[in-house]
Design a protein around this nucleic acid. Sequence first.
DNA 1: CTATTCTATATATCA
DNA 2: TATAGAATAG
Length: 791
Amino acid sequence: MVPRMNQSDPRPDPQDSLAHEPASGSLSARARAAVAPQSPYLNGLNPEQRAAVEATEGPVLVLAGAGTGKTRVLTTRIAHLIATGKAYPSQILSVTFTNKAAREMRERITAVIGPVAEGMQWLGTFHSIGTKILRRHAELVGLRSDFTILGTDDQLRLMKQVIEAEGIDEKRWPARQLAGHIDGWKNRGLGPDQVPAGEAGAFANGKGGRLYRAYQERLKVLNAVDFGDLLLECLRLWREHPDILEQYQNRFRYMLVDEYQDTNVAQYLWLRLLAQARKNLCCVGDDDQSIYGWRGAEVDNILRFEHDFPGATVIRLERNYRSTGHILSAASGLIAKNQGRLGKTLRTEDEPGEKVTITGAWDSEEEARLIGEEIEALHAKKHSLSEIAILVRISAQMREIEDRLVTLGVPYRVIGGPRFYERAEIRDALAYLRVVNQPADDLAFERIVNTPKRGLGDATIQVLHNHARAARVPLMEAARFIVETDELKPKPRATLRDLLISFGRWAKLSETLSQSEVAQTVLEESGYTDMWQKDKSADAAGRLENLKELVRSMEEFPDLQSFLEHVSLVMEANESDTAERVSLMTLHAAKGLEFDTVFLPGWEEGLFPNQRALDESGRAGLEEERRLAHVGLTRARRRAKIYFASNRRIHGLWNSTVPSRFIDDLPESNVEIAEAPANFSYGGSRFDRMQPFSGSSYQTPGWQRAQAHRATADDGGYSARRSGDRRGSMLIEGELVAKSTGGSGFKLGGRVLHTKFGPGTIEAVDGNKLTVEFDKAGRKMVLDSFVEALG
DNA sequence: CTATTCTATATATCA
DNA sequence: TATAGAATAG
């Protein structure tokens, strides 16, 4: 029954070989408890924190406001459980949301109680723990223990296939949308049979439920799960096999959950099943920091805790150790406007410090400039750049700010960009390795059959698919069959045969070479590395660098299998450089971090609070946005600076905007309005002045787009003329428009200068479109508004 | 089959 | 504006 243990888990488990002492540590831990009744690790905790650590029995909810020492409580509590001998490290289940959090917690526990903490095999994310459990009992839920975990892209591809197989028009009912529904159901712990009839009909005229079921069946055939399944299948396992549930209930003497406000229904059910027996469940969280409702988190879980777990102890941590008085009061005043909260009042013993500043800018460009100037000023006053952060609502805000920082030469780092393992080149490389490791991995196979391009396009794939489906075999096997027939034209047939032979060879290779050598070989022989070396686009070099990094990182793993396992669950960009840099990130990415100075641009209606959140979730959406604002403010230790702009470009078009209602939510005594900058000239947007033209051809999307282009891309002459006097812009617009519509000024054979491509010769003129042979960049089709006549 | 052009679309993110 | 995916031309 209990299949082989996870390979990455070499330590014997006291529960598996019952009544054995763990290898090391526990003796010393108990000795420590006996010798040191004073428990030094408890020193320095405030009374609430200490209560939270010592309330070991029964359900406990710790409401930990921002900056109140939450992590400290969590780690000390675990240390306490171990040091007092209440549980072995292996008997404590400790769940976090990110691997990073798990890693940090392990480190901090180790710092308190020493290497005993290494024995905490059940410290991890919901997903990693779910995986571990599922691998042990895979066959009970219809999987093999070496199942693959699908990433988002594989998931989508699979859903697309399912939709097409059902004969539904994929364009009318996009896979994206189906994925949204299925994710939603999984978040709520609903299997295909439990989806409410009304919702099952929400997709493709009532086929939603059926597609969900078909998708799950396909997953089983592929011996694969998606992220949601890692929890859902655990639930099913435990419900259908109470004896197994009981094993785990007995094993986990104490359970701790971090960031409880972020749990979804499935996670709640998962925890509740486990906690039913012993009830020693301690959840730590902050309802005021729940910002993931859009991906299924239920604030209700935390609001309902006392109801769900009768007799629960609730402990509030309200003493803030991070921010100065004004910042804290501003944040508290803001969040107090929310209805759905348990209620806490953060307090500090720190000085009031600086007030929160609010600065209005003319447009987002000026906003970026002002922020840049302030950063330079702070830097001149010897403030560390790594103690400065700019937190934006949406990542589209980043570009303008980055541009500004680049011009100023301020070093910065973007946190939370595309994850390392989500990058195209990494996913491709992994797909190769997956096929080598598991030839039946159809999704991976399909990803790379024609990457790099080798002439195996849609047509060939279609043939493979037909065979695979008819014979009910993996694509790889179907391919083997087909190259023996003459169904394919000679060329693709030969290419496909070569590829198959290569895969055979690579699979053999992995018996003799180390996995990183195999990877190196595969990437080279497949022509994948070549593909990027030939690519002369700007980011190709970075991609090659990433591939090298991937190969390097493989060396740390015992074999390919466990590497792939790790990779599908974790893998993060290892840019832990400590260089002096300003941090730029979204508010979501900022949760859990803190900085001396925090810039908060874009506090405008529609952007923040975000219109879409309002449209989709009404008041709940607004409250979540407000919590996000609260999170932003509470990241600041000493200075919080809010900005709004009166004009902002959204999807390339300028809109005039209204300051965010959150600005009015701030208590007046804690904020100050920063003086309007001197070169600030009111008098309406230059775009307001277009109004007289409304109804005319100037309102066409194309013209507006041209306007938008001009506003940013066209540098040089235009911006020089514009500088200083926005009122005069009307004339300039007219002039420019005349230039492009009249088509004058550009003649065949004329010389032009383009801001990006440099000088070139005009080869053709078509309205406002020019075909130009650039001296360096080759022939391009460009809009005339991007070039300037030379000579 | 591939390369180019066109067109639709736009939160946030973590496994 | 930027990008991804689809349509289309070669």
